[in-house]
Design a protein around this nucleic acid. Sequence first.
DNA 1: GCGACAG
DNA 2: ATCTTGTCGC
Length: 317
Amino acid sequence: MSACFSEKDIDLIGLIYEAASMIPSGMVSTYGDIAAALGDKKASRAVGDVLSRGERPPEVPTHRVVYSTGEIGRGPAAELRAKRLDEEGIQLRNGRVQGLAAARFADFDIEPVLVRLRKEQDDIAERAVLRDDPQEPCRIAGLDVSYQGDDAFAAVSIMDRRTGEIVEERTSRCKVRFPYIPTYLTYRELPPLRSLVRDTPGTVYLVDGHGVLHPRRAGIASHIGVALDVPTVGAAKSLLVGEVDDVEAERSPIRLGGEVAGCMLRHGRKAAFVSPGHRTSLRRAVALCSEALQRGIPAPLRRAHELANEVRREAYA
DNA sequence: GCGACAG
DNA sequence: ATCTTGTCGC
């Protein structure tokens, strides 16, 4: 059907390695340079995270990537980096690259993949249906992911709406190939979650993240809903975009772009930020989360979170 | 010191 | 999200 959703999962971590490997000896780049080459300078922190991780291939010249100030950081790792840069003819002084402009490499021959992903999100937003399915949901599923380095452990926990009992649970495990980047959460968590989502009539999926409360109105709940064609609701623990009308209230509308896009459900200090994902109205999204709310978190989400943590701990015991 | 954008 | 000891509170 829609070919744009069946493309292979993006290996952004591999692309970051590729980009860093393009920096010639004797030159340096900044984390922001690589992020910009990949299509979004906002991803510079993620680039830094990936290049600092212990799991990276040893041949990747991570020492050639520095802060925008030219600084290389402090500590034992920086000592080694300074040594390698010195061997390559880079002048350092007080832990900072001298003449950064002259030694700077930014001509990366690589696809700005994040630009393409933003376009895909725009497409998801256009396809998202913010009206209720005719059928009233009888089961509420919760989806969550936990991590151990680049190992992802996902879980789904399905609650019967009448009895409140958990009637089905499954888990999955896979390697992560996309770092956490705000507004691109889908590309990190969809791969581990995909196999847990079934198109079962009467089941609505609560996702740990936002629906339309997203800069492009395409948060992970919207994305999963449209891509896998299931009803979804976003329920996040903190806000990404939008403004809460009354933070003090137990329940308050959240405005985005001049309209009410979501709702805050507060329970003491904790709050759930709810927004529709797909095939669900804001009204129903709030009703579902509200009735399942347990200490500030919808029960199926809490259970999925616990389950994902359990399998992760078992795997690393 | 300011900004601080889900997990 | 994860890293982590003790600490605060019900």
